[in-house]
Write a protein that binds this DNA or RNA. Structure first.
Lengths: 231, 231
DNA sequence: TATCATTTATGATATATGTCATCTAAAACG
DNA sequence: CGTTTTAGATGACATATATCATAAATGATA
């Protein structure tokens, strides 16, 4: 299968201004020669729990899930990462091996930058260090916040949260195609698959949303937000 | 009320080798003159959600809880921090204001170091920067891991988790005095207070633990671990 | 000390959620 | 293309957990 994908020059990367704005042209050139940009088709593994951490990973495009394997048939999803997120979280600094697996839930492009190179920049370029840590801190903080938001709510509130998450923070639209299955939603919000399906049906019957397979349209944002607020 | 407490010199601090081992004597002296070491009695607030973040906070001694206020009567506890933990998490780098409140659950000593000073060391001392981020990353990673551990278990598994947490990771003893109330345990594991009490009574009746008020002794570690593993 | 408030404790009951069975629709595969 | 597998959907029922009520024990306060 042909994949139409060309490796970018970091200098032209839309995210240059985001993550690497404080690097000099020299440093950026170094990253550019050393980085590996990989394309992953939906469903492909980016890394597996236990893999050695060698690179700093950066989601350039697409959507991935971080998860732990519980049993043969059940996983527990920790978070969904979106473009600009540093995937692998902070483990890269505090662990030798990945503590979560990462899989693409949409066709994705991930940038791999040798961790030692990043560390050398942290050492030599203080401005970059500060800015860089602000960015990765925000990602980790957000994971904690999301876990708390989910766990303090019950079924309907959690489903509302997920719908609002995709609508507001990922797709910026009231109409989108769900990138994950009902089972995966269940694994993300710690609920049974059947109940996820049931609540989605309930929301459909109550005209909060419209569903056609994976396609979802939010019809009544206000009511959905009320479910989210009430828990 | 008299408090017998004397401010230490950072150079003599037991944690020097932990957090600040890569600072020069010069730099350490600077911290020493600028840092503020505060003593908090059990129950006293260290900071409140919304407070401006000015300092990097470091738990030298004692035990504190991080939490969000949900309603007038209910809080949600994010984590319990122990000595050597950086409290306030990564928010210090990604936020202007504290997103959680922090209160001492045991008499505690907290070191406050001006955040700008820390940042200046990150900029000027690369070795310190790397080591420092490894340390704070581990704390945040651990919070995420704990939340996942709790949420993938049900009542008995969660209570077992909490008991093992205090026993193994905080007090290093099978006998200890619970620093938090049953209600606070409930707020930490997202369960009702009544059920926390019920399961503790059940564990007592089944001779897994012995309870006398706040004093807890673990009698059957193996069975407790089995509850933890099963969920 | 007596009084009041809070924490711990327990039972009865309501509610939320999970599990099992079954079915249909849709996707994957030879 | 038909066959097989997987995802989605729904009902009946079991189980886990929350809620409400009440009371004893403990701690705080005047």
């Amino acid at each position: 299968m042909e994949i139409n994908h060309k490796v970018h020059n970091c200098k032209d990367c839309v995210y240059r201004s985001w993550a690497f704005k404080n690097l000099s042209d020299e440093e950026l050139k170094l990253i550019n020669t050393k980085k590996v940009e990989k394309f992953y088709r939906k469903g492909e593994h980016i890394c597996v729990e236990g893999d050695e951490i060698k690179d700093f990973m950066y989601l350039q495009n697409g959507l991935v899930k971080l998860y732990k394997t519980e049993t043969n048939t059940r996983e527990h999803i920790i978070s969904i990462a979106k473009p600009k997120d540093f995937i692998g979280l902070l483990s890269v600094f505090s662990n030798k091996a990945h503590i979560y697996s990462i899989t693409a839930i949409e066709d994705s492009v991930v940038c791999f930058v040798d961790l030692e190179l990043i560390k050398s920049f942290i050492k030599s370029n203080g401005i970059f260090a500060i800015d860089f840590f602000e960015k990765i801190s925000a990602v980790s903080d957000n994971v904690i916040k999301t876990r708390v938001d989910i766990n303090t709510r019950q079924l309907r509130g959690r489903i509302a949260y997920i719908l609002l998450l995709f609508s507001k923070h990922i797709y910026n639209s009231t109409k989108f195609s769900l990138p994950i299955s009902r089972k995966e939603i269940a694994e993300l919000i710690d609920m049974s698959t059947e109940n996820v399906i049931r609540v989605l049906s309930e929301f459909r019957k109550d005209k909060l949303i419209q569903i056609e397979g994976k396609s979802i349209e939010i019809l009544d944002l206000e009511k959905l937000e009320k479910f989210y607020e009430l828990g």
